[in-house]
Simulated scan of single mutants.
Amino acid sequence: MYRNRKINVLVLSDKTDSFGLKIKDNEKYQFFSECIDYKGLDKSNEKIKGYIFKNKIDLILFSRNNMVKDRIDFGNLLHRLQIGYSSFSGIDDDEWDEQTRQCLSDFLKGNVKLNLKSNKRDDIKQNSKKTFNLIFDMEQLGGCRYGLPRILKILDRYGVKATFFVTDIINKTYTDVIPYLAWKGHEIGLHGYLHEYLQTMSKEDQTRHISKLKKEFKCEIEGVNFILRMNNDSICCFRENSVKYFLYPHINKRKIISIPCGNLKIKNKDMILVPVCVETYGKTFETIKNEIQFTEMKNKSISNNITILMHPFSDGSKSRIENTEKVIKFLIKDRCPETVYQTIQKGEHKETRDFNISISNKYLKTIYDMSKFNLKTL
């Protein structure tokens, strides 16, 4: 979809940004810049939409994210526009300007090596029947450059292997990240070229799209994460590209949980659905702990496995890295105790004969609300 032409990038900066933008087109990207008031982002929706249509924009590159500066949330805007995105925002308030400049420079330069290093591992026994999947979504530049090294240090300390869903933007910008993660025994999954929305494509285009994306990563790929960015055709195209599992939102909202937290094989299909039961996004340790325990209580007769979603640009920031370590320590030492980690590809998958799932258009409007999803036979 993007390989035979330049990617059209709309760079959105705020009128108060002090770093300035000095951007020139290169062999990969054609840039369009717009200065907006991030505090009035929702009011700029039609203006941005018109700009996207006029210039055939593929990717919005934000100078902010919702964890630093004014905590601007652009998630709703992206869902309305259904367009790919990344952010070159720094992730730490006290170093935001410097980090933001560096991330923008990395994106423009490409092929940057972070020279990640191994850290000392604690001797932790793992002999429990309880397991967990720890997954990280990596689509923001600052999360990869600054958050990932801090997170890897903790994973090394506790001997945990995780699953990282990575966009091709991260892959092309920081070229040594995926080889390093694979070398360390972590699993790599697809998160898109540009964090794009698959449901905007035909079934045939989706199939070709995933096929090309798998080739770009040059490593073993078994899983994908297109939560909120896929439809029923996507599941078929995953299967045609030998993808073994996909993630599905099953975030605990303290309601009666309708889908088991264990990984399930879809009826008569060689495809595994992995419900994401807990997301750490901006939550305190106590809140995350309570959600894990509540989910387990509701599913104790079904599964001892739980899947937890994190984001390096948030959970790897200085303000939250201690919280992240508490969560991992709780999962490893305090939950059972001695819980066993597993990457998703190495997990146990229970086959079910009466569970089938379909994703309707309501999928985009009812974020993380399983009670409103349309369930029917594929």
Rank of each mutant, 00 (worst) to 15 (best):
G84R: 01
I178Q: 05
E216C: 15
G90T: 07
D122V: 15
K289I: 06
G50T: 09
I91Q: 07
V177R: 11
L213G: 00
E296Q: 05
L59D: 08
I235L: 08
K28L: 06
G90D: 03
K298L: 14
P337T: 12
N115R: 02
I60Q: 01
N45A: 02
E139N: 12
T163W: 03
D156Q: 01
G223L: 10
Q342I: 05
P337I: 04
R353E: 04
Y363H: 10
L198T: 01
L59M: 09
R254F: 11
E46G: 11
E220D: 03
R71K: 14
Y174W: 14
G159A: 06
D42Y: 08
E325P: 11
S89F: 06
K161T: 04
L194M: 13
E98V: 07
L364S: 11
K184R: 15
N171W: 15
D37C: 00
I321A: 13
I328T: 00
V243Y: 01
L309Q: 04
K6E: 09
I306K: 05
L81D: 08
C236D: 13
K203F: 02
D122T: 13
M271E: 09
G110N: 15
E348C: 04
C144L: 09
W96C: 09
F132V: 04
H349K: 08
K283Y: 09
K300D: 12
S317K: 09
D42A: 15
Y174T: 14
H186G: 12
T366L: 10
I257R: 15
D94A: 10
D94L: 14
M230Q: 15
H195E: 01
H209V: 14
V243W: 00
M1I: 07
F294E: 13
K49L: 06
D94C: 05
K69A: 09
D94W: 12
N65K: 06
V177L: 08
G142R: 02
I302P: 00
V278N: 07
K215A: 00
S242V: 03
K365W: 11
G282W: 01
K113I: 04
V160W: 03
Y85L: 09
F19D: 05
I7G: 05
K28P: 01
Y197H: 12
L61E: 01
L378S: 08
L364D: 12
F226I: 11
Y180G: 04
T163S: 14
K22M: 00
R64D: 01
D369Y: 15
R254Q: 06
N356H: 14
D156I: 08
K218Y: 10
N304Q: 05
T307S: 09
D315P: 03
N4R: 12
H250S: 08
F165N: 10
D137C: 11
R239E: 13
D25V: 12
E338W: 06
H186L: 12
I359Y: 11
I357K: 07
C277E: 05
D354P: 03
Y281D: 12
F355D: 07
T173F: 04
T163P: 07
E98F: 12
F313G: 03
T175I: 15
D73H: 07
I288N: 11
T280F: 12
K184G: 04
F226Q: 05
